[in-house]
Write a protein that binds this DNA or RNA. Structure first.
Length: 567
RNA sequence: UGCUCCGUGGUGUAAUUGGCAACACGUCUGACUCUGGAUCAGAAAAGUUCAGGUUCGAGCCCUGACGGAGCAACCA
C-alpha cells in the first residue's frame, strides 16, 4: 500500500501534455459518450523506429490510461510502396514495446469498398469530378502558397460523365496518370490542401491484400479521416506536418457523417534525436547501399535495431515519457535516451568480468596448476540476483588500460611496484614486466599476491587504492565484442538541406574486437541477454553469433570519469 | 510575399487557467573506497525572442515586430 501511495505521488507529479488535457476535458464533458478510442496507423513501407515509438506510446498509452481502446490500422493505400514483410515486423515491434491491439487489427484497404461508394456519392452530389489533365498541368493550376490556383476546365463537367469515367477508371480502361478524381472545394483557398485535392488515382499494381481487385486507390487524405470515422476513433493523433490537412480531414468527414460524432485530429511534435536520422526513406537507403547490415543493425534507430543493441522496451518507454508531447519542433539529446537505458539496465543487468583488450598477468608466487573459486555478487543494485563463483589461478588477463608503466597523477590502477586488489580475490603487487623487443609494448606483467588478503576473509585491514576486474587465462572464453558508436557525426544529419547526409556517416561507428576474454559462464549467454561488463558498459548477447563463439553488442558505455583524469 | 503552427536555463518539458519561473537530462564541486563508475550532498546556469498595451500584478491576455517550422507528390 506504501507502493500505491508512492505511485500516486509519481502520477500527480508527472506533467500532463496538452493532448492528455484535451482527453481529460473531453471525457469530463461526456463528449463521444465518454469514450476514448485511438489508433496507431503505420504505413507498411518500412520498419518501425524510435520515432514511431513516440506515437505508439501516446496512442496506446492514452487509451490504456483512460479506459479506452487503441486500434492497429495499416495505412495501405499505396500498393507500390507496401509489403507484407513490413506488416509482420511492425506487429512484432509493437508487441515487443509492450502494447496490445487485441483483435482490432485493421487495414485501410478494408474500407476500399466503402470509400469507393463515398466517392461515387460525392460525384453525384457535385462535390467531386474527374480531371483528365496530366499531373504537371494540375500541379501548375494549383498555384503557389502565395497565389491562388485556377480552376480545371473539367471542374464543372456533368456528374454523369464523371461517374462513368470513374467506373471505367476502376475497370482498368485508362492508363495510370491519365485521369484522377478530385474533390471540388476551393481553388482559391489560402490552404493548398483545399485546392481541389486529388482523392483517387489509377494504380495498376497488385495490392498485398486486395490483389487486382482495384485499379483506383484512394489518397491518404481520402482514407484516413474516413477510416477513423468507420472505426469510431475519437482522438486521431498525428504529427505536426498534418496540421494543414486538418481542414480537409474535417471537410471530408463532414460530408460523410450522419450524426454528431466526428473524430478529432490532434497534432503533436515528431521525435528528433541528435546524431540520429529518422527518415524511413533514408534508412532504407542505408540498408540498400550496404552501409549498415540491415534494418536490425544495432546502429539503426529502428526498434529491431535498438532491441539487438540491447535496449529494453522499458527504457524506451521511460525515455518517451521523459520527453513529452508538445507542438514545438524539438531536437532531443540522445544522452537522455542513453540515461534511460542505463537507468533501466543498472537494476536489470548482472555485473560480469570481461576483458576487451587482454594483458596477461602472471602471479609468480601462486602455485602452478592450482585453481580456486571466488564468489562475486551478481548485482550490487539488486542482491536478489545472488552470487556466482569464478575460477582464479596463476595466469590471468586484465584490461590493458588498467596497467600503465608510467602512470599519470591520480592513476589508481596497476603500475610497476604498485598494489591493487583483484576484485573478489587478492591484493597483488607488480614486480616486473616483459616487453616486446620490437614494438616496446608491454606483453606480460609479473605480480606477487598476498594470500592473507582474500576478499571476504575480512582478516586484513589492508586497503589499496585500486580494484581491478580480471579473468582466468585458463578458463576464460574467447568472445567477439562489437563496440557501437553513433552512426552519424553531425548533430542533425537529417536536417541538412542537401541529400548528402552520407557525408556525416561516422567511419568509426562500428569497432569489432575479436580477442576478448570473458567469464566462462558467458559461453552460454542467451540471445538478447544483458550484462554490465564491469567498468566497461552494458552489453547484450547477439543472436547473430558465429560458429558457437559468443558475440556481444555494446548497448551503451558507462559514463567514463577516468577518461577525463587521463587527459 | 499567402495560410497554419511554434518561440521558457546548454537540451527537453512544467508553471494549479493572471500571483516569488519548477523538474529531468547534461555540466561542474565534494563525499563514499574490496569499484557501485552506482549512491548521496551541493553548485553554476533562464527572468520566459523583442517592443508596446491592459492590470495592484503578465511566461500566461491584447497589438506589432523578429525568428523558426510546415503547406505548391497522382507519398503518407
Amino acid at each position: 500500500m506504501n507502493d500505491q501511495t508512492q505511485a500516486e505521488k509519481e502520477e500527480s507529479r508527472s506533467p500532463v501534455s496538452f493532448i492528455e488535457q484535451i482527453i481529460i476535458d473531453d471525457l469530463k464533458a461526456g463528449k463521444n459518450g465518454g469514450r476514448i478510442h485511438t489508433r496507431f496507423p503505420p504505413e507498411p513501407n518500412g520498419y518501425l523506429h524510435i520515432g514511431h515509438a513516440k506515437a505508439i506510446c501516446l496512442d496506446f498509452g492514452m487509451a490504456l490510461k483512460y479506459g479506452g481502446k487503441c486500434n492497429l490500422r495499416f495505412d495501405d493505400t499505396n500498393p507500390v510502396k507496401e509489403e507484407v514483410e513490413y506488416i509482420d515486423s511492425i506487429k512484432e515491434d509493437i508487441r515487443w514495446l509492450g502494447f496490445d491491439w487485441e483483435d482490432r487489427e485493421y487495414y485501410a484497404s478494408d474500407y476500399f469498398g466503402k470509400l469507393y461508394d463515398f466517392a461515387i456519392d460525392l460525384i453525384k452530389r457535385g462535390l467531386a469530378y474527374i480531371d483528365d489533365q496530366p499531373a504537371d498541368v494540375i500541379s501548375a493550376q494549383k498555384g503557389t502558397p502565395a497565389q491562388p490556383g485556377i480552376e480545371s476546365p473539367y471542374r464543372n463537367r456533368p456528374a454523369a460523365e464523371s461517374l462513368d469515367l470513374f467506373e471505367r477508371m476502376n475497370k482498368g480502361e485508362f492508363e495510370e496518370g491519365s485521369r484522377v478524381l478530385r474533390a471540388k472545394i476551393d481553388m482559391a483557398s489560402p490552404n493548398m490542401q483545399m485546392r481541389d485535392p486529388i482523392i483517387y488515382r489509377i494504380i495498376k499494381a497488385a495490392h498485398h491484400r486486395t490483389a487486382e481487385n482495384w485499379k483506383v486507390y484512394p489518397m491518404y487524405d481520402f482514407a484516413h479521416g474516413q477510416s477513423d470515422y468507420f472505426e469510431g476513433i475519437t482522438h486521431s493523433l498525428c504529427t505536426l506536418e498534418f496540421e494543414v490537412h486538418r481542414p480537409l480531414y474535417d471537410w471530408l468527414v463532414d460530408q460523410l457523417k450522419t450524426g454528431e460524432y466526428r473524430p478529432q485530429q490532434i497534432e503533436f511534435n515528431r521525435l528528433n534525436l541528435t546524431y540520429t536520422m529518422m527518415s524511413k526513406r533514408k534508412l532504407l537507403e542505408l540498408v540498400q547501399e550496404g552501409r549498415v547490415t540491415g534494418w536490425d543493425d544495432p546502429r539503426m534507430p529502428t526498434l529491431c535495431g535498438l532491441r539487438r543493441r540491447g535496449y529494453t522496451p522499458e527504457s524506451i518507454r521511460k525515455f518517451i515519457d521523459l520527453i513529452g508531447y508538445t507542438k514545438v519542433e524539438a531536437i532531443n539529446d540522445v544522452s537522455l535516451l542513453e540515461h534511460a537505458v542505463r537507468d533501466d539496465l543498472n537494476i536489470r543487468a548482472p555485473r560480469i568480468f570481461a576483458v576487451l583488450n587482454p594483458l596477461k598477468v602472471i602471479i609468480t608466487n601462486y602455485p602452478e596448476g592450482k585453481t580456486e573459486n571466488v564468489e562475486l555478487i551478481n548485482n550490487p543494485e539488486d542482491l536478489s540476483q545472488g552470487t556466482r563463483q569464478i575460477p582464479f589461478c596463476r595466469e590471468l588477463f586484465i584490461e590493458q588500460d588498467d596497467f600503465m608503466e608510467n602512470p599519470p597523477h591520480k592513476f589508481f590502477r596497476l603500475t610497476p611496484g604498485g598494489e591493487v586488489r583483484l576484485k573478489g580475490a587478492y591484493i597483488i603487487k607488480c614486480t616486473g614486466l616483459k616487453k616486446n623487443q620490437a614494438t616496446g609494448e608491454v606483453e606480460e606483467v609479473y605480480c606477487t599476491y598476498d594470500p592473507e588478503t582474500r576478499s571476504g576473509d575480512n582478516k586484513s585491514e589492508r586497503k589499496v587504492k585500486g580494484t581491478l576486474h580480471w579473468v582466468s587465462a585458463e578458463h576464460a572464453v574467447n568472445a567477439e565484442v562489437r563496440l557501437y558508436d553513433r552512426l552519424f557525426s553531425h548533430e542533425d544529419p537529417a536536417g541538412q538541406k542537401d541529400e548528402d547526409y552520407r557525408n556525416f556517416l561516422n567511419p568509426d561507428s562500428l569497432k569489432v574486437l575479436k580477442g576478448c576474454k570473458v567469464e566462462p559462464m558467458l559461453a552460454g549467454a542467451k540471445p538478447l541477454e544483458k550484462f554490465q561488463f564491469q567498468r566497461l558498459g552494458y552489453f547484450c548477447a547477439d543472436y547473430d553469433s558465429t560458429a558457437g563463439k559468443p558475440v556481444f553488442n555494446r548497448t551503451v558505455p558507462l559514463k567514463d570519469t577516468w577518461a577525463k583524469i587521463n587527459k
